[in-house]
Amino acid sequence: MSRNRPGIGQYVLLTLLAIVFLYPIWWAVSSSLKPAAEIIASPLSIGELTLDNYRAMFADVPIGTGFLNTALVLLVKGGMTMVFCPLAGYAFAKYDFPFKNVLFGVVLLTLMLPTLVLIIPLLLEMSALGWVNTYQALILPGSVDAFSIFWMRQTIAAIPNELIDAGRVDGAGEFGIFYKVVLPVIRPGLAALAVLTTMNIYNDFVWPVVAVNDTEHQTLQVVLATLAQNVTGNRIGADFATVWGELLAAGSIAMLPLLVIFVLLQRHFINGILAGSVKG
């Protein structure tokens, strides 16, 4: 027990690392509460606190629309990922069917394709379907992705086959076994997948900026990317400090949802990552 107890040196090292990683977040939030001129004049000092940057940002940028669109895409697309990818992973892990290994190899091969290679074919497909500038274009592509299937397959493969056979002996159907036997066991892996999926969808920029070119369907990341242009376009004579103040205000608001989600699910997320790294 004493041999495994962290020493004071480890605590000091972890504290220093925490300060290094948390300082940029603290600086961004504290700077967003300063007058715009002070952000440039004295970036490391804390002076007068004001909400002017936030008021101006909400007036100049449709960040509320970006949040609503991102929440909708996250709810529907993330829900599809969390439903279909565990089912596909369960099939690859516990069922035998013709060409199973070939199909799983094809799924893994898609991981090697860069996102930029797929943009033009996907955009042409969306155009042929008439889905450009629609929520379908934001939600359906990538809703069942190769990494999530691979992650679930590896997680479910660690479940003993005897546990599933016991469910069949008790008279449970295949979906009943998946729901009552498999899902409770892989809950840490599902939590890790939920966090990773949320981060990927929330931070996605390349595909939304290509698939949507109207303000009605813009996601949060697209709104943030065009923030400087919107500020200078909506306010005549807006200087560099004003743009920075509103950028920091928007960035501080945008990072809050991910921080809350990670804090709430961090125990399950860490357990899921560790479970996937250990082969029992």
Rank of each mutant, 00 (worst) to 15 (best):
R153H: 08
W131L: 12
V83L: 13
L51T: 11
A41P: 11
G171P: 11
R267W: 09
A91G: 05
I236Y: 07
W207I: 04
E125C: 11
P62D: 10
A250S: 05
L224G: 10
V231R: 07
V117L: 09
L129I: 12
L190A: 08
D214K: 04
V182K: 02
G189D: 01
Y135C: 13
V102M: 08
E216W: 10
G173E: 03
S277E: 11
L124M: 13
P208N: 04
K100W: 01
S143G: 13
T110Q: 01
F205H: 10
L111W: 12
P98M: 04
F97Y: 10
L124E: 13
E125T: 14
N53K: 03
L22T: 14
L116S: 15
K77M: 13
L259R: 02
I261H: 07
G142F: 01
F269L: 07
E216V: 13
C85V: 03
S32M: 04
A158I: 13
L51N: 06
R267Y: 11
L118G: 05
T215P: 07
V117E: 05
Y179C: 14
A41C: 12
V263L: 14
A146Q: 06
I236S: 13
V210K: 08
D239G: 11
I46L: 12
G189Y: 02
P188C: 05
L196H: 07
L49G: 01
L103D: 08
W27T: 14
L247F: 00
T50L: 01
K77R: 11
K77D: 11
N161S: 08
T115D: 15
L44D: 09
V181D: 06
G66S: 08
A41W: 06
F178N: 04
K279W: 11
L113V: 15
L49S: 01
R153G: 05
L248N: 00
T50I: 03
L111I: 08
V195N: 00
Y179S: 14
V182I: 14
L68R: 08
R267L: 01
I270K: 00
F269G: 00
K94Y: 12
M80K: 03
Y23I: 04
A56P: 00
Y90H: 07
V195S: 04
F84I: 15
G189E: 00
T65A: 12
V107G: 05
V223K: 06
N133T: 10
N234G: 15
K279A: 09
A146N: 07
S31M: 04
I270L: 05
